[in-house]
C-alpha cells in the first residue's frame, strides 16, 4: 500500500498546468485533483503514474459561477461546495440533494466535481448528473481548448473522451427552468457506497402534464445514460403512477446491465425499475 515512485509537479497557473501535462503525458503523467480515486489506486499500485501534476494550487481552477444560462464548475471545486445550493432554483437544490450520496463527508471535502467526471466511474453521481442535464466539459491542452458535450464524453467504464494531455478545466451545467421538478433515487448496500443503481429524472409540469422529461440511469450500465424510450413515454402524460410504471418498465427493457461476480444482470435490471419509478415519484411529490 505504498505508491510506486513518481515525480510531483505543483503548477500555479492553468498555463503551467497544461504545459507540464503536455511534457509528462507521454510518460503516464496524471492530473492529481482531490486524490480520492487516484491515490487509493496508486497505493494498490494499480496505477503507477511516473508524474503527478497537482492542480490544487491553481487559483484559476477554483471558480464556481453562473455565466449566462450555465453554472461553471472549475476543476478545483470540491464535492462539499454543493452541500448548500450554489444557485437559486432547482439546479442548486438538485446538486445539494445528490451530493449527500457521494461517499462520506471527509471525502467530499477533498474530492472534486471535475475529478469525478474525469474518472468516469459508472456509478459516480456527478457523471449521472452531467449526463441527465446535458453538461459540457471544457478540455484544455497547451495549444487549444474544446468543449465536449456529455453524450460524447463518457466512453465506457472509467473511459472518457479526454486525451492524456488534456486538462478538464471546467464543467458547465445548464441552469434549469424554475418550474423544473427533479427526483433522485439511489440504492447501495451502505450509506456512502457507490450506487448499485440510481436514477435522476427531471421534467417540467405544465397543466399537470409532463414536458421535457429527462430520465437517466447510473450504476446499471457501463456509463450513465439517458433512456429515450422512457422519456418518450412520459412526455405529454400526467405525472401519475401509471406513467411512472410504464417508464420504469421501458427502462428495464432497454438497459444492458453490468454483471460482476457478486451482482447479477438480473438484479441490476430489477433495480433499474425501482430506482426509476422512485425517482419519478420523488419528482412528482
Amino acid at each position: 500500500m505504498k505508491p510506486a515512485r513518481f515525480r510531483y509537479h505543483a503548477p500555479k497557473t492553468i498555463e503551467e498546468a497544461v504545459d507540464t501535462l503536455a511534457e509528462v503525458a507521454g510518460e503516464d503523467g496524471r492530473v492529481l485533483a482531490g486524490g480520492q480515486s487516484l491515490v487509493p489506486i496508486m497505493a494498490f499500485r494499480l496505477a503507477r503514474p511516473a508524474h503527478l501534476v497537482d492542480i490544487n494550487g491553481v487559483e484559476g481552477l477554483r471558480r464556481l459561477s453562473v455565466e449566462g444560462e450555465r453554472l461553471c464548475i472549475g476543476a478545483c471545486v470540491r464535492h462539499a461546495a454543493f452541500h448548500t445550493p450554489v444557485v437559486d432554483g432547482p439546479l442548486g437544490r438538485l446538486l445539494a440533494t445528490v451530493v449527500r450520496h457521494i461517499a462520506h463527508y471527509p471525502i467530499r471535502t477533498r474530492g472534486t466535481f471535475c475529478g469525478s467526471i474525469a474518472h468516469a466511474d459508472p456509478s459516480a453521481e456527478w457523471c449521472l448528473v452531467a449526463t441527465a442535464l446535458g453538461a459540457e466539459m471544457v478540455a484544455r491542452r497547451a495549444a487549444s481548448t474544446r468543449t465536449i458535450p456529455a453524450q460524447d464524453f463518457f466512453r465506457g467504464i472509467m473511459t472518457t473522451a479526454l486525451e492524456e494531455d488534456e486538462l478538464l478545466i471546467e464543467v458547465r451545467l445548464p441552469i434549469l427552468p424554475a418550474d423544473t421538478r427533479f427526483g433522485f433515487y439511489e440504492f447501495n448496500r451502505r450509506a456512502g457506497d457507490f450506487a448499485l443503481g440510481m436514477a435522476l429524472v427531471a421534467f417540467r409540469l405544465q397543466g399537470g402534464v409532463i414536458r421535457e422529461p429527462r430520465v437517466a440511469l447510473g450504476g446499471i450500465e457501463s456509463q450513465p445514460r439517458r433512456i429515450a424510450e422512457a422519456e418518450q413515454l412520459l412526455a405529454g402524460r400526467a405525472a401519475e403512477r401509471a406513467a411512472f410504471e410504464a417508464a420504469a418498465a421501458a427502462v428495464a427493457s432497454v438497459v444492458d446491465p453490468l454483471e460482476d461476480a457478486v451482482t447479477s444482470a438480473t438484479y441490476r435490471r430489477d433495480l433499474s425499475v425501482t430506482v426509476t419509478r422512485r425517482a419519478l415519484e420523488r419528482a412528482a411529490a
Binding site: F44, R190, A191, F194, A261, V262
Partner: peptide, 15 residues
C-alpha cells in the same frame, strides 16, 4: 474478490 473495504463491507454508524 473482497480485498478492499470497497468490497468487504463492514457496517458503519449509518447501518
Amino acid at each position: 474478490l473482497a480485498t478492499t473495504f470497497a468490497d468487504y463491507l463492514m457496517p458503519t454508524t449509518r447501518e
